[in-house]
Design a protein around this nucleic acid. Sequence first.
DNA 1: CTCTTTCATTACGAATACCATAAACGATAA
DNA 2: TTATCGTTTATGGTATTCGTAATGAAAGAG
Lengths: 114, 114
Amino acid sequence: MNDRQKLMQREILLGFWKVHILHHAGEGPVVGHWMLQELRHHGYDVSPGTLYPLLKRMEKNGWLSSEQDLKKGPKSPKRYLLTNEGRQVLALAKQQARELCRETTPSDTEDGEQ
Amino acid sequence: MNDRQKLMQREILLGFWKVHILHHAGEGPVVGHWMLQELRHHGYDVSPGTLYPLLKRMEKNGWLSSEQDLKKGPKSPKRYLLTNEGRQVLALAKQQARELCRETTPSDTEDGEQ
DNA sequence: CTCTTTCATTACGAATACCATAAACGATAA
DNA sequence: TTATCGTTTATGGTATTCGTAATGAAAGAG
């Protein structure tokens, strides 16, 4: 991964894939390790030291809930799901994302056009 | 500002308005103090302690360049402009933002539709 | 049964970023 | 002179990010 990508990652993209995470958690249970790979597929390079604390924080914030089968050991997969609060946060975030797109890319339906 | 908004701000929205800043800097010189108000108008509550270091960091990253008329004192307005590197970063960020929107909102033109 | 690999999380410490608030400075208005 | 506005810098506590290493169970190879 090049330098620009790395700087962007921390400064900007980080916030983007947090939204991705919420979105995924809204469609079904997500597991940290799986998310790690999913993000890599999308070109993000995330370290466990970033993702796992993030997941915990989102749970603490009330955006996600988790369940883990502790009978299968302390390192058994933890499944995260979007809560109602998380759903609202996601909705707001998506709205802001759309606004960001709208404002930063010239639209054909805006005035001042032609 | 309520609790949810505050958490979202740091976790997610922060990254969004960094893109806004780059965008603005691409359209003309931006000044920290002005940006601070601009962001407030858009409902973001940003403190100087966040914004000014950010601007400096973006300059250090090569995304922005700044000019200041020091004859008018050390606290005279600093005008930031988007660099070429910044332009590329902005382009990538916009692309990712669009992808975020595309993936998180069901599109009418995707397969699996209807 | 032992060894290795894979799936998955936790732990940790250094570097960085965020935030509220205070201080500073010049200009302008009262 | 004093106050206010526009503007940046300074500062210190707290929270995030990151790379890496440790841990543990399960599954496959031999």
